[in-house]
Design a protein around this nucleic acid. Sequence first.
DNA 1: TTGTAGGCGTTATCAT
DNA 2: ATGATAACGCCTACAA
Lengths: 346, 346
Amino acid sequence: MKKVPFIVTMQDVARYAGVSTASVSRALAGKGEVSERTKDRIHALARQMGYRVNPIARGLRSRVTGTVAVIVPQHHETRQSIAEPFFMEILGHIVDALAEHDYSVLLTKVASNARDWITKSVHTRQADGVIMIGQSVHHQALNDAAAAGLNIIAWGENVPDSAYVSVGSNNEQGGYLAARHLLEQGCKKLVFLGDNRIPEVVARCEGYRRALEENSATGEIRATSQEVPVHFDGATAYKEIREFLRSGSKVDGIFAVSDRIAISALRALREANLHVPKDVAVVGYDGLPIAAFAAPALTTINQNVEAAGGLLVNKLLEMIAGNTVESTVLPVELTVRQSSLRKSTA
Amino acid sequence: MKKVPFIVTMQDVARYAGVSTASVSRALAGKGEVSERTKDRIHALARQMGYRVNPIARGLRSRVTGTVAVIVPQHHETRQSIAEPFFMEILGHIVDALAEHDYSVLLTKVASNARDWITKSVHTRQADGVIMIGQSVHHQALNDAAAAGLNIIAWGENVPDSAYVSVGSNNEQGGYLAARHLLEQGCKKLVFLGDNRIPEVVARCEGYRRALEENSATGEIRATSQEVPVHFDGATAYKEIREFLRSGSKVDGIFAVSDRIAISALRALREANLHVPKDVAVVGYDGLPIAAFAAPALTTINQNVEAAGGLLVNKLLEMIAGNTVESTVLPVELTVRQSSLRKSTA
DNA sequence: TTGTAGGCGTTATCAT
DNA sequence: ATGATAACGCCTACAA
């Protein structure tokens, strides 16, 4: 015995107002010619009757959905990712920005078979465009989708010659700043923590290497480096880092490609009785709010996530409107906190 | 010069197969009578042509969208919330569970004017039902929506006589366990951190009080208590807790109504030069993965978030299928870690 | 300025 | 078993 919610249709409004549905449509959409008087009357009536246009029906007819699909890639092995802080942070800002433009968000997590999912929501007319949070390992799928004419934009590294538009931070520069900071703090045994199959990580690693090379060129300090593959998923990363530490490798400076990985490192180091920053300096990446709450507070490469979310949305809506847009590389900055301070600031 | 993606429609398949769209529809949906032979032929052809039913059109006709709206409440003042770890954690599981049933997720953040938003997606036929993550201050709006026949379910406290179905942990018991644990650890100046306008928090607070009353009844230990209003948003909570500590109040045991708030407390305590757990024991709530990564590792009230997500989805789909479902209160358990260990375990 | 009619892609009903 | 045909709710030429 369930009440069925009564839904007011445009027909109802039309009948009630004694006009045709066409007039109601015009009056409400503000398009076409309608006399001021009937327009006002219809507006009032519609509000009064609790009428709301059915975007589904409108979309079917006008091929505009007012919806954007947001895709969060999942890493194959660990399934997790949507809960990872960075994804959530940027997702929140994207949802906000889209809401401001009266757009709805269709949220999808996707693992390996991304190719289908990327096109699906648009092909089935459920969405006008797609935002992919992190290109992950799907660079080629994104390229194909964009080349096929899909409105698509990705957060991530600006890969040369990609067909799709991207917004991302200057990953190479970020990696460089992180490594240089560690060297400046006197670290001699550096470790890079990240999954080198992902374009953003590759770029961060290249920056990291550049700092090391620069350093060995000037030749003042002799520093060694190791690159350890570690997943974005925090729990998995923790286990991997623990294994690494148990293997007996010597470390005195760590650059983790995400704040979440860095926090996993902090725990692993703590459990290995290594003091941060005295024994090991740690630098993360993302500039998430939680970085400031870690113990010790985490030095990190700050990317403006809120701006990123806004940019992704604005650019995508531009694309949907038929305009061409360019990729953007956002600047990064080093935020120094206790986790990396081995020298006194004085 | 943009390629428009070519979209295969049911008509196309029908034409190609030399049958009517009706037959294609029946063959693909598996409903109605179709001969095995043509059914197979159509299936093969459809796959080959890359045809996918347009859920929009189907929804328009059959009034089933295959989509569920997930609403995340935002706290009025702080705007944040979707990025708060608990919301993300459960959202992730909900998305997973819905995907398993081939359901899409329409994600909405909502602030004060929730009343409209709750009904909107369903009334406009964008979704078959609604999942609200945390009833927040919208208990009445939820009640009204459910009474009006909306398929709606909320994560949160099972408020007596609510018209809507809910899934939540045993908040009262959780609060009780937390406070009793603090008392057992010898804390004498307890503080409750949480926003008492929210049903879940109220229940946790009642449990907390029950433990205190029980204690004062047995009369062995004389413990005082303060209840400090603190928002769910981590950054805001941090400031509020800092203010509280600066006010000079004495504390030796804290129960925070979320792990995120507890982590904010850890930071504020650290900055106030109070040692955890020696000076102050801290217990959180949620049982999030990050709790184990806090420094010191956070004692918490564990609620099975993954199970919760699955239950919310299953129940909602049952409702959509026309069956009646009951609310569920999930058990909680205390997970003891270092943040509360003042007595040696021995 | 307003109404009529057709169609968006699908499903459901009714014939055949 | 299959095919017309109407309808879902809306938009938009075109006609009035």
